[in-house]
């Protein structure tokens, strides 16, 4: 479940805008790119970032759910595309689709699409881990007071609700209701009223929350912020490398280096030496913040300096 935990993590100490920049650029980069090498670079960056942010376990756990969706997508692609030149297998004729055939290109296409999806999933796990919702609300409500509140409240309601569901079902058990024992049907029947209760009590709570916010003068005019929101050295560092990576990406894109041809025949993903260098440059800039974060964990000296 998505409950934000405050921890001693480098990324959590960053300015929310910096974080957003870093994550957003990787995201845009992933959407812009079909070149597997660049995607691998992103993948490495994200996975290391997840490890440094101590959420590797969460990630692995989520993989099962996401993995299933990735596989679904890849399968659909296999069947819809019969554009590939290198046909590996010819299947039966199916109404609507015509003859099913599987080509090498379609497989590669599927794999690359899967990789892209995967990176995006992982980025969001990372986002949830490092973006402090309180801090984000503080910062963004300066710009868009109402929408920021809306989004923040929405995400805040989630842990609230799971909390509530838990205490409600605990108390129901103490009243003698069987949630985890009894046969299948009675278990489901015992849980059904929870939907109604949950809707009711979340709405009730939201009114209380709104009341409490208004009683504490939310939205009464200019607002200050509890975080020292100056850009620190670490913010500059991370923003700089994100921006550089973006520039390199845009440039590569203009040269056509971020994409490869799939159909009818697989194109090359590495056209020249410069292309290779560029990929390395992008990779370095994406991974640099992770390296800094890692060093920050390891050496107290770095902790003091940036």
């Amino acid at each position: 479940m998505y409950v934000f935990e405050r921890k001693e993590i480098f990324f959590q100490t960053l300015h929310p805008v910096t974080l957003l920049l870093y994550i957003l650029i990787m995201m845009i980069g992933t959407i812009l790119t079909t070149n597997p090498f660049i995607l691998m670079g992103f993948m490495t960056a994200v996975v290391f970032a997840l490890i440094v942010a101590k959420s590797f376990k969460t990630w692995i756990r989520s993989l099962r759910m996401y993995g299933y969706m990735v596989i679904m997508l890849m399968t659909i692609n296999l069947f819809i595309n019969n554009m590939g030149a290198t046909v590996l297998w010819v299947g039966p004729v199916v109404p609507v689709f015509g003859r099913i055939s599987i080509s090498l290109e379609a497989i590669i296409f599927g794999l690359v699409m899967g990789l892209r999806l995967f990176i995006i999933y992982s980025l969001f796990i990372f986002y949830n881990r490092v973006m402090d919702p309180d801090k984000a609300l503080s910062v963004f409500s300066k710009v868009f007071p109402k929408s920021a509140l809306l989004v923040a409240l929405t995400t805040k309601t989630i842990p609230y609700m799971s909390q509530q569901l838990q205490s409600a079902s605990e108390i129901q058990q103490c009243r003698g209701l069987q949630y985890y024992t009894g046969n299948h049907i009675s278990r489901i029947k015992n849980r059904l009223p929870l939907i109604k209760v949950l809707l009711f009590s979340s709405l009730e709570d939201s009114f209380n929350l709104g009341e409490s916010m208004q009683a504490r003068a939310y939205g009464s005019g200019p607002r200050s912020c509890y975080y020292p929101l100056s850009f620190g050295g670490r913010d500059i560092l991370v923003s700089f490398s994100s921006t550089m990576a973006l520039l390199a990406l845009v440039w590569s894109r203009m040269l056509g280096w971020t994409e490869i041809t799939f159909y009818p025949k697989l194109g090359t993903s590495l056209t020249s030496k410069q292309h290779l260098y560029m990929i390395i440059v992008i990779g370095i800039f994406m991974i640099l913040p992770v390296l800094v974060a890692w060093g920050w964990e390891k050496w107290d000296y770095l902790k003091l300096k940036i």
Partner: peptide
């Protein structure tokens, strides 16, 4: 953001959305 109503309306929408 420009037109939206009071905190209570926002709270209401947020909750329904989350739900």
């Amino acid at each position: 953001d420009r037109k939206a109503g009071s905190t209570k309306e926002i709270a209401l929408i947020a909750t329904l959305a989350a739900f």
